[in-house]
Design a protein around this nucleic acid. Structure first.
Ligand SMILES: [Mn+2]
Ligand SMILES: [Mn+2]
Ligand SMILES: [Mn+2]
Ligand SMILES: [Mn+2]
Lengths: 161, 161
DNA sequence: CATAATTGTTAGCCAAGGCTAAACTATTTG
DNA sequence: CAAATAGTTTAGCCTTGGCTAACAATTATG
């Protein structure tokens, strides 16, 4: 509870969606379904992305570092590493540090790129860096490629002029 | 797999975050923590928001409608309603339709407002309505009030001129 | 109004993602 | 090089949010 709840929600200007009719049932259901699907992959993506970052910036990814950066117990990380292994995203020998497989590297790169676009977009919009980092960490997993393209275009406009 | 993955991720123009140093450990951990916290409340918020919408647009909120709109089994809804009850967000008599408590109405309104801002913002940005609805459903739970204000300002600019 | 259809509930299952405590391995250091 | 410290894994627990199948209640219909 710090920066995230200082100002109260506003009233929406323009047409309020509350006034609109509900979407057709099938479409409505598909919206929630998409969110549920994103939730299944997002933790995985964050782990893989973080492992990639650690390797790149630290030379190696150790479970203890992942745990402290994630803000989670080492046991939790250990369990997750087993899952990443089963998914073919990392390779690991017991008590040694981790490596990303081909697939893992690909996922790390895609996630990192998407994360960066969302972060840069928020900053370009005028959001404070600290807040932007927090918001981006959650939002990134729920942004379609269409929206991503538009965000990228927006960044370009703000940046080179 | 439809509209959400047609165009490939781009290269980030401008400074890439991958090049930046990792954030200090404590801050990094707090980012993920914020996301975990959001995940704890988001389903609840969506249920309450949907119940509010159903009452408003249909006159009542029945479990079967919630199930079909959420794209989930009735058993799942039944179980969730018990939770909402325990949390003091809804009142319900067995086999009857639902009502929001004071707290529930408040949460529904706050969620609905935030949802609308995100949706209107995406449309104002130029995102296709269909995609915007999908993205908004997930993004809404990860947007700080700071970002929300900025989104609102952006909507106002685009709208009244 | 009796039966059929719809709606709601309960029981029991499962996977994911947290945790603590205990055991084990590796690394550092006196 | 032995002992202490740091890092990793395992076991076992918990909650959340899904599911199916069986049962119960309500509502609609012939
Ligand atoms: Mn990320
Ligand atoms: Mn993330
Ligand atoms: Mn919503
Ligand atoms: Mn939502």
């Amino acid at each position: 509870m710090s920066d995230r709840d200082q100002s109260l929600p506003h009233t929406v200007s323009g047409a309020s969606n509350s006034g609109d009719a509900l979407p057709p049932i099938g479409e409505h259901a598909r919206q929630y379904e998409t969110v549920r699907n994103a939730h299944e992959t997002e933790l995985i993506e964050d782990y893989v992305e973080l492992i990639g970052d650690l390797i790149q910036h630290r030379g190696e990814a150790r479970a203890a570092d992942i745990a402290s950066r994630m803000g989670v117990s080492q046991a939790t990380v250990s369990k997750m590493i087993r899952r990443l292994n089963e998914l073919g995203l990392v390779t690991s020998k017991p008590y040694r540090s981790l490596f990303l497989t081909e697939d893992g590297q690909k996922m790390a790169e895609v996630s990192r790129t998407r994360h960066d676009i969302v972060l840069h977009f928020l900053r370009a919009l005028g959001v404070n860096d600290h807040t932007a980092r927090i918001d981006a960490e959650g939002m990134e997993h729920h942004v379609s490629n269409e929206t991503l393209s538009i965000m990228q275009r927006f960044i370009d406009q703000q940046t080179q002029r």
